[in-house]
């Protein structure tokens, strides 16, 4: 059965908030672990949609991309990008 976006969003937000005390940015592969029965490609598509919806945001070093809840972490405030 296809992964429901609303349900997936709830799982992702819950998991990121739970882990948010120790870190604010996650690798794409970390999201695969939230949905062990789904294909990585399916999870990737939902994560990217949630970025488009403004729930998540990318952080990029230039070589690697990480993903976190929008506004989480220090950088946006520190760089005046709020």
């Amino acid at each position: 059965m296809a992964l429901d976006k609303a349900e997936a969003q709830k799982v992702i937000v819950d998991q990121l908030e739970k882990k948010g005390k120790s870190k604010s940015k996650f690798y794409l592969k970390d999201f695969y672990a939230f949905f062990p029965d789904e294909k990585p490609r399916t999870v990737k598509n939902i994560v990217n949609e949630l970025v488009g919806d403004g729930i998540l945001e990318y952080w990029s070093s230039g070589s690697t991309t990480m993903i976190g809840l929008k506004g989480a972490g220090k950088q946006a405030g520190a760089e005046g990008e709020d």
Partner: peptide
């Protein structure tokens, strides 16, 4: 500094934040 959150809408690449 290392990396950044900036980009253009709908894209997750092509822009590299530098401060």
């Amino acid at each position: 500094k290392h990396g950044g959150i900036v980009g253009v809408f709908g894209y997750g690449g092509g822009i590299i934040g530098r401060y």
